[in-house]
């Protein structure tokens, strides 16, 4: 039976209106509701389903970030994950944490925990990087099945249906492998109140990147973060001639 490692990221809740800091260094995170990245929820759900189908023996969730990251680990535990690993990264290091660091951490942990599958969400809804799964696979030198919308386990391999532009692609790859979950893979369950209570008794191991021998020094620098341009107001024109005139002026005709 397989051992599954899932990555979960704590992000600003999908329903929150994002505000950019006035000094353009990032977005406002203080006092803002956070939750588990929705794509990671799908990854957790898939791992838990593998366990329920007796394909996976143990499911381990990993989160990298400050102390509050344990909240999303608890949510994962409430959804049915067996144990959590919290890699604590705080302060300036957390501000400049990038997928490359997370993938190094995930790769190290996959080796340490003897995982056969690593499942992560295809991207996080805060930085939209879509890099962690790919780079983790590269570090481990494992096959990767990204944008999965269906996973079937064979004898020694897995068959994954991938969402590609305008269609689906079915691939088969050997285990161990890295999978990234797309939106249509499954419908994540809601963590119920009794399960949240039970999750409090499940173990969470705390580590630092240093314990794993990972250097979290930033590779890139954020120059500026800006709001998308606001939509320009429209104008009401009196007649067709005015409209044609305007269109010619704008170079549309």
């Amino acid at each position: 039976m397989a051992r599954v490692l899932v990555g979960v990221k704590r992000v600003i809740d999908y329903a929150v209106k994002i505000r950019v800091k006035p000094d353009k260094t990032g977005v406002v995170t203080d006092g803002v509701k956070h939750s588990m990245n929705p794509f990671d929820e799908i990854a957790v759900e898939e791992a838990v389903r593998l366990k329920e189908k007796k394909i996976a023996s143990e499911v381990i969730a990993v989160s990298c970030g400050p102390a509050q990251s344990q909240e999303v680990l608890r949510t994962a535990l409430a959804m049915g994950v067996d144990k959590g690993i919290h890699v604590e990264i705080t302060g300036a290091e957390y501000d400049t944490l990038q997928p490359i660091h997370v993938s190094k951490i995930l790769a190290k942990l996959a080796e340490k925990e003897k995982a056969d599958l690593v499942i992560v969400g295809k991207q996080a809804i805060d930085d939209d990087s879509n890099q962690t799964a790919q780079m983790t696979a590269a570090y481990l030198d494992w096959p990767q099945a990204t944008f999965a919308s269906k996973i079937e386990k064979g004898d020694k391999d897995i068959t994954v249906t991938r969402e590609v532009d305008g269609g689906l692609e079915t691939i088969k790859c050997k285990m161990p492998a890295v999978i990234s979950a797309d939106l249509r893979l499954n419908e994540p369950r809601y963590a119920t109140l009794p399960n949240i209570m039970k999750a409090k008794k499940k173990p969470i191991t705390k580590l630092t990147p240093k314990d794993l021998g990972v250097d979290c020094a930033p590779r890139i620098q954020v120059v500026s973060v800006e709001d998308p341009p606001t939509r320009q107001a429209g104008v009401v024109l009196p007649d067709v001639d005015a409209l044609v005139g305007k269109l010619k002026e704008g170079g549309h005709v």
Partner: peptide, 15 residues
Amino acid sequence: LYMLKKYRTLKRRYY
């Protein structure tokens, strides 16, 4: 309801 709301928001944003 919550699941659908999240699914629809994500679908609108990314697809």
